[in-house]
């Protein structure tokens, strides 16, 4: 069985799917990624599907599952490079890809993850409007 390689770039795991994956290969990728997130402590996962000429319900479900697993493991997943014909077909197939963040390309995906992480960092010091200090007159 073929395996999809996972690259580590800084704080991000990059998966560039270059083959027409069998279902077994897709399931293995899901498991490999979960292990790598834990082993590396990375906070971002980018899945580049530029080379995929179709996304069917099996691969669609794999993408959703990866997004859910990484969220539980404190990592953000962004799917990048979806072809227009693939997007059109996904909608007609009825796949909603709920909970999946997408970006145009790897660079934008990295920006999105960085922005997400920065926001979350702010949240730790955000005590909400009730506790906000107001300037005295």
């Amino acid at each position: 069985m073929e395996r999809v390689p996972i690259l580590k770039i800084g704080d991000i795991l990059l998966v560039s799917i270059q083959v027409d994956m069998s279902d077994q290969t897709a399931v293995a990728l899901q498991e490999d990624l979960a292990e790598r997130i834990v082993a590396t402590g990375c906070h971002g996962v980018i899945i580049d599907i530029t080379a995929l000429d179709i996304v069917d319900s099996f691969v669609g479900r794999m993408l959703s599952t990866i997004a859910s697993i990484s969220r539980v493991l404190d990592a953000e997943t962004v799917v990048v490079g979806m072809r227009p014909a693939v997007a059109i077909t996904l909608v007609e197939l009825g796949l909603s890809l709920n909970g999946i963040r997408t970006a145009l390309n790897v660079e934008r995906g990295m920006e999105l993850i960085a922005a997400e992480r920065a926001d979350q960092g702010d949240d730790e010091f955000d005590y909400g409007p009730d506790t906000e200090l107001t300037a005295s007159p």
């Binding site: 279902d23 000429d53 069917d56 072809r83 014909a85 693939v86 059109i88 007609e92 197939l93």
Partner: peptide, 17 residues
């Protein structure tokens, strides 16, 4: 067309599975 190719390949993938 490219979109129709994509649709029929996707349908075939579902049915073959």
């Amino acid at each position: 067309s490219l979109v129709d190719q994509t649709k029929v390949v996707t349908a075939a993938s579902e049915l073959a599975r």
